[in-house]
Design a binder for these strands. Structure first.
Lengths: 226, 226
DNA sequence: GGTATAGTTAAGTGTAGATTGAAGTGTTAA
DNA sequence: TTAACACTTCAATCTACACTTAACTATACC
């Protein structure tokens, strides 16, 4: 039973669970009650749904005091949800989540734990253009020039490669339909840019706002007018 | 309603519809009754499910006489289903579809309309190794050497590029977890290899058998012992 | 200690939507 | 021109499983 796709699809298929997964796509860990709010349902109900998702190894839990934090158990889950997002009938992507601020989310957002949207795609294209990373098969390699670039952000690429997680790979952007940088490097890069206050996360959305500082840097380094 | 993921996930979530989608993953077009057999349900029921999938633009229909042939409306649907396949709990992939011939399907199969499985991945690696195609961003480019290679198979790569479909891209293999060649080129390549009788499709499975001729060619050209 | 908050578990209920049965349209082939 | 076949449509039925109500455990903080 557990080894069939039907098991996975039926899990993903429930509207409440879909909302949970869609919410977690911003890469943050959420508590059960936060998710209950997002999915607009009761604590008991969300608890039931979450336990099913954990049992199927789609989500992982971590207890912190009386809170329980839920997040994706592995990046493939996020990739699959994104792939499903790609199937949403086009029609100019009118209502993306039923929310309103779709312009912002198309422009600049997180995809699991890395940068996506128009800005994410442009940035990735520039990293390649400037020969900081280069595509090789279905992954990206970091060039010598790239290694020193990332070290400016306190990212030790050699150290990152040691992690179990895939180092750097393209992830298809569901609004731009072009690839953006994902994997351990993509995650680290976004993390450092958030730390450097180039970007700031928004409260209840995957949208990300670009700070004045970030705007300046994006233009100076990459000629991106964000 | 139609512009939300919940709409898509709930469609994919039904067990009968999942079976339909999983079956169509071999790239063939199936009639309604064939699909009813695969999904082990009644004609009326399959008709209802199919019409929902068509309405959502996940499937396309073509009438031929009194038959109706169903297939994926676009490659992204197949990619999404494959991405979900990647989420099946590992445990050595014991029961892949509930069928028995899992060894064959892991070794050599179709993924939508191109070659996948161990052989598909090895072949793709060799195409890169021999500099017939080269990765560039999230797509593959065909080298000059590659152009003449494919023309041996009566594939006019320049002509192929004119189609709306993405020319050549890596697709993550859900058994090998490595990329294999997809897109218009991947589809054309498999088509020609089937025509040349290197491979033959099997009746009710995505598994593909390698002919003696194919085995020879794979070794001679690519040093692949299949 | 006591009280508030976070989350879980168990039993009973309700309903969306899959399934079935019966009757229909259009197509093929004898 | 009849019969068999491929598929659809429309009610009627059935049922899995999400949701609720209620009682419970565990942690936090005063």
């Amino acid at each position: 039973m557990k080894q069939e796709i039907g098991y996975i699809t039926s899990l993903i298929g429930d509207p409440v669970r879909t909302k949970i997964l869609w919410t977690l796509l911003d890469g943050r860990a959420y508590t059960a009650t936060e998710l209950a709010l997002c999915a607009d349902t009761s604590p008991q109900n969300i608890s039931m749904h979450l336990s099913k998702l954990v049992q199927a190894d789609l989500l992982a839990v971590e207890s912190q005091g009386r809170h329980k934090y839920y997040r994706f158990s592995r990046p493939e889950v996020a990739y699959a949800i994104e792939a499903i997002g790609n199937l949403i009938p086009d029609e100019k992507h009118k209502k993306i989540t039923g929310n309103t601020n779709n312009a912002a989310i198309k422009h600049c957002r997180t995809c699991y734990d890395h940068l996506a949207g128009k800005v994410g795609v442009l940035l990735t294209e520039q990293l390649i253009e400037q020969k900081l990373i280069e595509p090789e098969g279905a992954v990206y390699l970091v060039t010598k020039k790239g290694r020193s670039f990332f070290s400016e952000f306190n990212i030790d690429t050699d150290e990152l490669k040691k992690s179990r997680r895939i180092f750097a790979k393209p992830c298809l952007d569901w609004t731009e339909r072009k690839p953006h940088l994902a994997g351990a490097l993509g995650a680290a890069f976004l993390e450092k840019m958030l730390l450097s206050d180039y970007f700031r996360k928004t409260k209840d959305s995957r949208a990300i706002v670009i700070t004045a500082k970030g705007r300046e840097q994006l233009y100076d380094r990459f000629k991106i007018q964000a």
